[in-house]
Design a binder for these strands. Structure first.
Lengths: 164, 164
DNA sequence: GCAACCTTGTCAGGCGTCCTGACAAGGTGA
DNA sequence: TCACCTTGTCAGGACGCCTGACAAGGTTGC
């Protein structure tokens, strides 16, 4: 018995429902993050923590995957550099480019963030049913892989290294 | 075989996955809306179309449900009034207040929007499986009702009319 | 009846986020 | 070598939403 099956005027479009869930989930994450030692990290910084790993990534590549302009990402990276979470190192293969990578502190923050996200998801699994949340994740991963392949790290990496 | 089960570094936090799905879905909606006669409606206007129906709603109430300030909603309403989608009528019960309601054109737009959202959702049901999308909606409606009851029109209405 | 207080909507001003346009410096191919 | 592309940055602006302050109108207690 869903609300939509009872009252058409209370029907909420799927994107709106997805946003509500995302916001609620993200709010739980933020609440915990803000109390940690990484409380100065803002939501916008996510595009860097989400895509950068290991040997670093070019500004252009981050921008493409995050579906943002280079300028916007550049601003965010500036901020993360100021706060000591990221650094720019010259790309040995291309003197125009700089590789954006995380500092030690940045990697700690990234690891901490992943842990928090996992914890919130686990709480929701207890709240709404482990199988339902697992099914949700599975469906969403399928959607992500199909709708915006470049936002999925694994696929993006494969696309970057077609040979190696 | 999900990506998360194979490669931990490709694991995407649930809010991110939800956003990806929401964005993809919303992009399909926007593409169709922009080609319609209501192409001048912007995403921000949604908070009005989503909550206003029938005899109108006060600015304060829209703001509360949309989780925004009165000022922000006021700006959006101004814009919708300029474009002929909404109007302010004096509240007969409170001379301070004005009821924001849709013009005829606004109601057409609202109906058209709902139809488009339903059409996109149906397409996704064909693409990803009707039962999976139905289960997704059901879970998300449960989440919305629990996490942010005031964003759900049916619940919000009930809360506004505790007696009647 | 009246004073203290709350609510409603608006004006003014500001901040964060992201955009377009233009550019120098560096790579690439004929 | 020359024309062309890419990378990252600077400048400026649009948009969405915020806080603060306020007048006009309700509401409550005495």
């Amino acid at each position: 018995m869903t609300s939509s099956s009872k009252n058409p005027s209370a029907w909420i479009p799927l994107p709106g429902l997805l946003d509500i869930a995302s916001d609620a989930l993200f709010a739980e994450f933020r609440a915990e993050l803000e109390q940690s030692e990484f409380g100065d990290i803002r939501p916008t910084h996510g595009c860097v923590f989400r895509f950068v790993q290991g040997h670093g990534l070019r500004l252009t590549d981050i921008a493409e995957r995050a579906n943002m302009t280079k300028q916007s990402v550049g601003e965010i990276v500036d901020d993360l550099v100021d706060r000591g979470y990221a650094k720019r190192i010259p790309d040995p293969d291309d003197k125009r480019a700089k590789l954006i990578c995380l500092t030690e502190r940045g990697e700690s923050a990234q690891a901490h963030g992943r842990k928090l996200f996992a914890r919130v998801e686990k709480r929701w699994a207890e709240r709404y049913g482990a199988e339902r949340i697992a099914a949700l994740r599975e469906l969403l991963e399928e959607i992500a892989a199909r709708e915006v392949p470049f936002a999925v790290p694994e696929i993006a990496q494969a696309a970057l290294k077609p040979v190696a």
